Computed example of a mutant assay.
Amino acid sequence: MVFRREGEVSPGRAGSGGGLGRIFGGSPIGVIIRLALLCVIVGLVLDQLDINAFQLFRWAVDQIEDLIRNSADILKLIGRYFLIGACVVIPIWIVMRVFNLGSGRR
């Protein structure tokens, strides 16, 4: 653990670009260069795999639409099971409450 006096700057944070350095996570120029290089590498890999960015985006949108559609079906099914179960559980619960009130227990 390193203790610093008030106003002292940590050696690891010097030259990080101040406020922009905190937003970018380092020197803004360095981050931009790393991101550009990463974009070129990912673009090269996707091109070699014959994956188009628009196809990838369309696939992601289709997956989200399927998830929403299937979630709606699941919620309908759960709602149906809830109503069927409530037709049995609620009357039994009411009868048990009535018997408990008659015996004096609470």
Rank of each mutant, 00 (worst) to 15 (best):
R13Q: 08
A72Q: 12
W93G: 12
R22D: 09
A60F: 14
W59F: 15
S16Q: 13
D66V: 06
W93P: 01
N70C: 11
N52R: 07
L37S: 10
V61R: 08
L49F: 04
R5I: 03
N70Y: 14
G79Q: 05
I33G: 09
W93N: 13
I84H: 10
I90M: 01
G15D: 02
Q55W: 08
I74H: 06
R4N: 02
I23H: 06
R69E: 09
A36F: 13
S16M: 05
I84L: 14
P91V: 08
A72P: 02
G12F: 04
G15E: 02
I41K: 01
C87N: 08
D50Y: 10
L83H: 07
L56N: 03
N52L: 06
G15I: 01
I84E: 09
A86C: 08
A36L: 12
V45W: 05
G7Q: 07
I41Y: 04
R80E: 12
G7Y: 04
S27G: 03
D62T: 08
D47Q: 15
A14W: 09
R5M: 00
C87A: 15
E6Q: 14
L20K: 06
I32Y: 15
F24L: 07
E65M: 02
L38V: 07
Q48S: 05
I78W: 02
P28K: 02
G21M: 03
S16I: 04
V89Y: 11
P91E: 05
R22M: 01
G19C: 04
L38P: 03
G26Q: 07
G43R: 07
I41V: 15
V40E: 10
E8P: 01
C87H: 06
A86P: 05
I29C: 03
L77A: 15
R5Y: 03
Y81W: 15
R13V: 04
D50S: 09
I29N: 00
E65F: 13
Q48R: 13
